Amino acid sequence: MSGSRQSISSVLIPMQQRPLLIPSVCIASIQDYSRPEENYPETQWLLGDLLWRGIKIPVVSFERMNQGRFAEFSATNRLAILRRTSKSDKLPFYAMVVQGVPQPLTLIREEVRNSAEEKGPMEKHRIILREIPASIPDLALLEQKIDEIVSKNQTLEASPSA
């Protein structure tokens, strides 16, 4: 063995149920929570849109997407502004409601093991990281679902009223 350990710059994001582990390059900004403009009545997990740096971005509740509980507002709510993992000229960013301040960390493979818990529909993996249960979200699937709802909503807005 060479003795070198592979590491990944990551962020542990506090959530109401279990923290999410994502690559740090996905985080564009963390800001105080502000209530989004409710534009998506057909879904419980897409909370609305928010104006961020001059662009309108959707705000999601990962817990609701993952079929978990989500208390909408608390004093510790923040918004994590995420860069998309897939290319999109229309929606290069989206926001996720988080609980508190994300913790940057250097992830070393030896510090992670699989969890025996069943993963939710929006999770790639459930893991134990340094003895902390965490989830690795399926960001590509999450972004696909956001695109579907936002596109559907824009089509409805563009169609003439009868």
Rank of each mutant, 00 (worst) to 15 (best):
K119P: 09
P58A: 10
D49E: 09
S29V: 01
R53G: 04
E131V: 00
K90M: 14
A95Y: 15
Q44D: 11
R113A: 03
I81Q: 06
Q17G: 11
E72K: 07
I81N: 05
Q67S: 13
I13D: 01
Q67R: 15
E38C: 03
V101Q: 07
A80R: 08
K145H: 08
K152G: 04
I128T: 03
R18S: 09
E72I: 05
T43P: 07
R126I: 07
S24H: 05
D147A: 10
I132Y: 00
P41R: 15
I57G: 08
E123G: 00
S86N: 04
L50S: 09
W52N: 08
G100Y: 13
S9D: 15
K90D: 14
R83G: 12
G54M: 06
F73L: 08
E110C: 10
K90G: 08
S74N: 14
V98H: 11
R78G: 13
D32L: 15
Q17E: 13
V97W: 08
R53M: 11
L156I: 01
R64F: 15
S10T: 10
R18H: 03
Q6G: 11
E117L: 02
L21M: 04
R35K: 15
F70S: 15
E143L: 11
E117A: 02
I127V: 04
F70R: 12
P19W: 00
I132C: 07
K119T: 10
Q6I: 09
R113L: 06
E143M: 14
S86L: 05
S24I: 02
E118G: 11
R113S: 04
R83C: 12
G68D: 04
A116V: 03
V59N: 13
Q99V: 10
E148W: 08
P23V: 00
V112M: 14
P104S: 06
D32F: 15
P133W: 11
G100N: 12
S151R: 08
T76L: 11
L107G: 02
P102T: 00
E42R: 14
L21C: 05
V60C: 05
F73N: 10
Q16M: 12
I81Y: 10
L12G: 03
L139E: 01
